[in-house]
Simulated assay, not measured.
Amino acid sequence: MKTTFDVSDKLFELYHRVHRLINQSMTEEGVSLARSKFLFFLNKLGPCRSTDIACALNFAPRTVTEAIDGLERDKLVARQPDPEDRRAKIVSITDVGRIALEAAEHPRKQLIEEIFSALDDEQLDQLHEIVSKLVRRTDEIRERREQEEAVRPAAAAEA
């Protein structure tokens, strides 16, 4: 019988292998997996501030600024002044960025199909159910920890 740590290690191993393989294929098409996250976000939601991107993708603002610098240098995104705040810039995906994102998405989807073709429909449904259950449990734990964290400062202030 496998332990929870055996299964967890195997899941992490799978994630890292799939991530590396997809990143390599996407990079060969011109946009790495990391860069495609920014482009996908901008393509889906439209122009926005870098602070909005940082918040949505859960990245440090400095990381987003550096990524946008590189994407802008490669003409994949453009920055324009924010009409509501002259200190801020609005970032948007360019036509070149859309073309690059589209080109990189094809190998990603193809690899995912190829990897998951190892499972039949029933196994795929079971895996989806199991992973969904683990995602829900993870969310429950995160929410509980956030609540506990919120209670700590209040309890310390009362003491």
Score class of each variant (00 low, 15 high):
residue 30 G to W: 12
residue 46 G to V: 08
residue 66 E to N: 01
residue 85 D to W: 13
residue 125 D to C: 01
residue 94 T to N: 11
residue 85 D to P: 14
residue 81 P to M: 09
residue 34 A to K: 09
residue 103 A to H: 08
residue 111 L to P: 01
residue 32 S to D: 06
residue 92 S to T: 11
residue 127 L to G: 08
residue 41 F to P: 03
residue 55 C to E: 00
residue 107 P to G: 09
residue 42 L to S: 09
residue 63 T to F: 01
residue 44 K to I: 04
residue 73 R to G: 05
residue 65 T to L: 06
residue 79 R to T: 15
residue 104 A to T: 10
residue 81 P to C: 06
residue 36 S to D: 03
residue 127 L to I: 05
residue 71 L to H: 02
residue 82 D to M: 13
residue 69 D to Y: 07
residue 49 R to Y: 00
residue 124 L to C: 04
residue 94 T to C: 11
residue 85 D to H: 15
residue 76 L to R: 07
residue 90 I to R: 12
residue 112 I to P: 00
residue 128 H to E: 14
residue 77 V to F: 05
residue 102 E to C: 02
residue 112 I to H: 02
residue 75 K to L: 14
residue 105 E to L: 15
residue 104 A to C: 11
residue 67 A to D: 04
residue 74 D to M: 08
residue 47 P to K: 00
residue 35 R to Y: 06
residue 82 D to R: 12
residue 98 R to I: 14
residue 116 F to N: 02
residue 33 L to N: 13
residue 102 E to K: 04
residue 118 A to W: 01
residue 86 R to N: 12
residue 128 H to N: 13
residue 128 H to W: 09
residue 121 D to Q: 04
residue 79 R to P: 09
residue 35 R to A: 10
residue 86 R to K: 12
residue 32 S to W: 05
residue 69 D to I: 06
residue 116 F to D: 01
residue 59 F to M: 08
residue 90 I to D: 10
residue 90 I to M: 15
residue 108 R to D: 00
residue 111 L to I: 12
residue 55 C to S: 01
residue 75 K to I: 12
residue 67 A to V: 04
residue 48 C to N: 03
residue 46 G to A: 07
residue 124 L to Q: 06
residue 37 K to T: 12
residue 71 L to T: 04
residue 120 D to Y: 06
residue 64 V to M: 01
residue 40 F to G: 14
residue 35 R to M: 08
residue 114 E to P: 09
residue 127 L to W: 07
residue 47 P to D: 00
residue 43 N to L: 01
residue 37 K to I: 09
residue 76 L to A: 04
residue 49 R to W: 00
residue 55 C to V: 01
residue 53 I to T: 08
residue 68 I to F: 01
residue 42 L to E: 07
residue 91 V to L: 07
residue 103 A to Q: 09
residue 92 S to E: 11
residue 68 I to M: 02
residue 41 F to N: 08
residue 37 K to G: 06
residue 40 F to I: 08
residue 106 H to W: 11
residue 93 I to Q: 11
residue 117 S to Q: 08
residue 100 A to V: 06
residue 104 A to H: 06
residue 32 S to P: 05
residue 112 I to Q: 05
residue 50 S to D: 07
residue 87 R to C: 04
residue 46 G to P: 08
residue 49 R to M: 00
residue 91 V to Y: 03
residue 81 P to K: 10
residue 129 E to P: 00
residue 64 V to Q: 02
residue 83 P to T: 13
residue 129 E to D: 07
residue 74 D to A: 12
residue 62 R to T: 13
residue 88 A to E: 15
residue 85 D to C: 15
residue 72 E to F: 03
residue 116 F to V: 03
residue 50 S to A: 08
